[in-house]
């Protein structure tokens, strides 16, 4: 599958409403990450250093009690624990297929929120929307 370009990334629900000036602040923070089938992206209990946005691939968020949710929509967010205290992942995330994600460092993201609160609020609202559209099982990572 072809990797999405900057314009396609801008069209993801998280970034769609950003003004060009705001987008120019966010885009440099995005790093592309490739994963392979069965790779564990996030371990429960680890320090939450980054969150991820799915570009392609199928991922499973799973908990100790055996419950799980699968995500494969472009723009779905994984690892939001990196932007909320206590900055610790609350679930495991495993790639069901090969895939590609955008990775944003939690610290850089929080710094951006502090320097531009309007942009921060916009992004956090979108993250909140994305999290709440999922089935409520455990504390979704």
């Amino acid at each position: 599958m072809k990797s999405p370009d900057q314009e396609q990334i801008k069209q993801l629900s998280l970034f769609r409403d950003l003004a060009p000036q705001q987008w120019s602040l966010v885009y440099p923070l995005l790093n592309r990450v490739r994963v392979i089938e069965a790779e564990q992206l996030i371990c429960e209990g680890d320090r939450a250093h980054s969150f991820y946005i799915i570009l392609n691939g199928h991922f499973m968020i799973h908990y100790k009690d055996g419950s799980a949710v699968s995500l494969n929509q472009k723009g779905d967010i994984i690892g939001w624990s990196s932007v909320v205290t206590p900055f610790q992942y609350t679930a495991n995330v495993t790639a069901l297929t090969d895939g590609e994600l955008l990775c944003i460092g939690g610290a850089e993201f929080l710094e951006l929120i502090q320097t531009d609160p309007v942009l921060g609020t916009k992004l956090l609202e979108k993250i909140n929307e994305s999290i709440h559209s999922r089935p409520h099982i455990g504390l979704t990572s």
């Binding site: 499973m60 790639a95 069901l96 297929t97």
Partner: peptide, 10 residues
């Protein structure tokens, strides 16, 4: 198994 499960979900 992972990929197969993904396909079965799809």
């Amino acid at each position: 198994a992972h990929c197969t499960v993904s396909r079965l979900i799809a």
